[in-house]
Amino acid sequence: MGSVRTNRYSIVSSEEDGMKLATMAVANGFGNGKSKVHTRQQCRSRFVKKDGHCNVQFINVGEKGQRYLADIFTTCVDIRWRWMLVIFCLAFVLSWLFFGCVFWLIALLHGDLDTDYKDDDDKSKVSKACVSEVNSFTAAFLFSIETQTTIGYGFRCVTDECPIAVFMVVFQSIVGCIIDAFIIGAVMAKMAKPKKRNETLVFSHNAVIAMRDGKLCLMWRVGNLRKSHLVEAHVRAQLLKSRITSEGEYIPLDQIDINVGFDSGIDRIFLVSPITIVHEIDEDSPLYDLSKQDIDNADFEIVVILEGMVEATAMTTQCRSSYLANEILWGHRYEPVLFEEKHYYKVDYSRFHKTYEVPNTPLCSARDLAEKKYILSNANSFCYENEVALTSKEEEEDSENGVPESTSTDSPPGIDLHNQASVPLEPRPLRRESEIGSRR
């Protein structure tokens, strides 16, 4: 089982795998120059863009038009607004034209077009017409509009002379109601789609790998820009990579689940303020055997998904993003964004995407760390350097704002901070800030 798991979770494809794949392509008759073999020097295209759209195009789909027309309502909801407006206008105009032609044909076959009612006051002739005051196609078209929109100006009306005319008036009224219901329903469904809710759900630009509770963890940050909550919010993550099976089958995008606390339930989050999602790199993680150097040379993509129900409509929305291997910062942490004021908490989104480097973060893999092949620094050293990194950030910001350097908390000259780390230190809580992250 261990060997199978290692093969499945191998992220960085070796040169031997690339040569094996190329040999397979030639042997199977696919070596026509169009096949692409992804190596370390040639990274694959992003499968999920940063804005959440999937970078996929469908080609050679059989009976595409028929399949889309069979699900016309979903098609109308998914198309762009400009095409929705075109369909909206065409549906009414074509129905008016169709029934206008029908009423014109009825008048033509009944002989109503030969009668001039402007110079004739004989009401008996008017009563013999199928539709009064309809003696041309324009008049028939206007009567069709008046019937379907129930305008009723009063000059044109159907008589009991022709039952077919009466039937067409009733039929057009029913068709008009159906068109109204369909168009209004599609427009309302399109307006109520929770897709735009994703514009106020954000992911951090970069993911980070750092120590948390004595273990290497992959972390990324999510935030909600609205005050309205995302009900039943939960997160998922998958690692996408290519691999070759033991039988020699090439899988271009193998999807591997990344555990973010599904078993323990901590994948469900209360997204009021930005939260750091934590994936513990343990023996079940696809990143277990990867060191910093392996991450730098790897070719994979981590897709992160945030799902929840919109509070206003109770409709489920899904926000997506992805991180390539070069977008994962090893040995970094996110800057705090949640600050405790006197009577409330304040979230500073200008710090949302910012990170700071944490010294002495192990550069080895989580496996080597678990097997004690890498000796961690003293816990006080880690905490102290973590505090120094934050303090230096604040000093830089104070210097930019014009604060005198004498007010900063610099260490005395001639003292090495790293050498001082081995000395037991008193706890130094942050002056006014605390970061709330997901705790395992």
Rank of each mutant, 00 (worst) to 15 (best):
M211I: 06
W220Y: 07
V166P: 02
R268I: 05
M211N: 02
V310K: 05
A314P: 06
R367N: 01
P413S: 15
L94I: 07
F339R: 13
E327A: 00
S124K: 05
T200R: 12
N378I: 03
L94T: 05
I59S: 15
K20N: 13
L218E: 01
N135F: 08
E395A: 08
I305Y: 11
I106H: 01
L338V: 13
S406I: 10
V131N: 01
E232Q: 06
Y334I: 02
M315N: 07
D368S: 08
D17E: 10
K195W: 10
S422E: 14
R82S: 05
F88P: 04
G152M: 02
S408T: 10
I209Q: 01
C364I: 03
T391V: 10
V56A: 13
R5L: 04
S124F: 06
D120W: 00
F99Y: 09
I436Y: 09
L390D: 15
S127K: 11
S14M: 14
G414C: 05
N28C: 04
S321R: 09
S273K: 14
G402A: 12
G265P: 12
K215N: 04
A181K: 09
L239Y: 10
S399L: 11
E247C: 11
D299S: 06
K36P: 13
T23D: 15
C43Y: 08
R236G: 05
F382S: 08
E283W: 03
D119H: 10
A25G: 12
T23I: 03
V126S: 07
V102T: 08
R236N: 08
G248A: 08
V169H: 04
H110G: 02
N419G: 09
A129R: 05
F155C: 04
K64M: 03
P274C: 11
P429M: 15
L105V: 11
G18F: 06
V61Y: 10
D296I: 06
Q57C: 08
S377W: 06
E335K: 03
H279T: 02
N32V: 12
D51G: 06
L271G: 04
R221T: 01
V208N: 00
P429R: 12
L105I: 06
G65W: 15
G261E: 10
T407H: 10
V12C: 15
D294P: 00
A207G: 14
A421D: 05
L290D: 02
A366D: 01
P274I: 02
I415W: 07
Y344A: 10
F137G: 04
Q318H: 07
G152D: 01
M219C: 10
R197Q: 10
E15D: 10
T75K: 14
P274H: 06
V166T: 03
K195C: 09
K292P: 14
L306V: 11
S381T: 13
R40D: 13
E335I: 06
C177Q: 10
L338M: 12
L201G: 12
V187A: 07
S392Q: 13
W83M: 06
F300S: 02
D71A: 12
H205G: 03
T407E: 12
P424L: 03
V61E: 14
A210V: 09
W104P: 00
R268D: 07
S406N: 11
L430M: 10
C43L: 08
I302D: 01
L94F: 04
Y384Q: 12
R351H: 15
Q318W: 09
M211T: 11
C177L: 13
R80M: 07
C177E: 08
R428E: 15
F137K: 03
H332V: 01
P252G: 15
T361Q: 06
D120H: 00
I164S: 09
I87F: 15
Q255A: 06
V187S: 06
E435A: 08
R5H: 10
S365P: 01
F262K: 05
V37Q: 09
A421M: 13
H279D: 00
I415A: 11
Q42G: 13
Y323R: 01
F339H: 15
D116V: 15
G414I: 09
N7L: 06
D254N: 10
M191S: 04
R82H: 03
T159P: 04
R432A: 15
L113Q: 02
V304C: 10
A210Q: 06
T313Q: 11
E400D: 10
I106Y: 00
I174F: 06
R212L: 09
N360K: 03
P412W: 06
P286W: 02
E396W: 05
K342Q: 05
Y345I: 11
L324D: 02
T147E: 02
K190C: 07
K196L: 11
K346F: 04
E340Q: 05
K193L: 10
T245W: 06
Q172G: 02
L109G: 15
G308P: 07
V61R: 14
I11T: 11
I184L: 07
V208M: 01
V4K: 08
E385L: 07
A314W: 11
T409Y: 09
Y349H: 13
D368N: 08
S399T: 12
E280Y: 13
A27E: 15
V272N: 07
F143E: 00
G261K: 11
V388H: 15
R428N: 13
P427N: 11
V202S: 08
N259G: 09
L218N: 00
E397H: 10
D180E: 06
L271E: 04
V347P: 00
R432P: 14
Q420H: 08
I184W: 05
Q148C: 02
